[in-house]
């Protein structure tokens, strides 16, 4: 057998091995109900419930944030993230979490915020009299 064939076979074998082992790194998107059912780490997309309490009290613990999230299925659960609260948290229109359910709360290990872009923000700033004077 030619050496290149051996290498080719080797690479294919390694590739299959990696695919199998890497499949454990992959998780699916889920809602709260599915996350509770599987008990595994999942990705979860939802919206911040702005009317429910957002608890972040850095005087007590700068690494504890708790809030309520509505998932795609409409279920609302408490989410706990052991990290600081990002600056524009309240403005987020969508939140992507990685984590698992722990009883009735979702313990998030990682959070990504999607904030409204300027395009969707159909708001036109109207010049105040002051800034008009300044620009003259």
């Amino acid at each position: 057998m030619k050496r290149s064939h051996i290498i080719a076979i080797g690479i294919v074998a390694v590739a299959i091995g990696i695919l199998i082992s890497a499949s454990q790194d992959v998780t699916t998107y889920a809602n709260f109900a599915q996350a509770a059912l599987s008990g595994d780490r999942v990705k979860l997309v939802g919206q911040l419930e702005k009317d429910r309490p957002i608890e972040y009290n850095p005087e007590k613990d700068p690494n504890f944030l708790s809030f309520y999230l509505r998932d795609d299925a409409g279920a609302v659960r408490q989410v706990v993230l052991r990290a600081g609260k990002p600056q524009d948290f309240e403005r987020s229109e969508q939140i992507v979490l990685t984590g698992a359910m722990n009883g009735e709360t979702f313990e998030a290990a990682d959070m990504l915020l999607k904030c409204p872009s300027k395009y969707k923000d159909q708001e036109i700033y109207v010049r105040s009299e002051k800034s008009e004077q300044a620009s003259k």
Partner: peptide
């Protein structure tokens, strides 16, 4: 299909 994602991209 709900879609798949990496649990922890950095670690992976």
């Amino acid at each position: 299909y709900v879609g798949a994602a990496l649990k922890d991209p950095v670690e992976h």
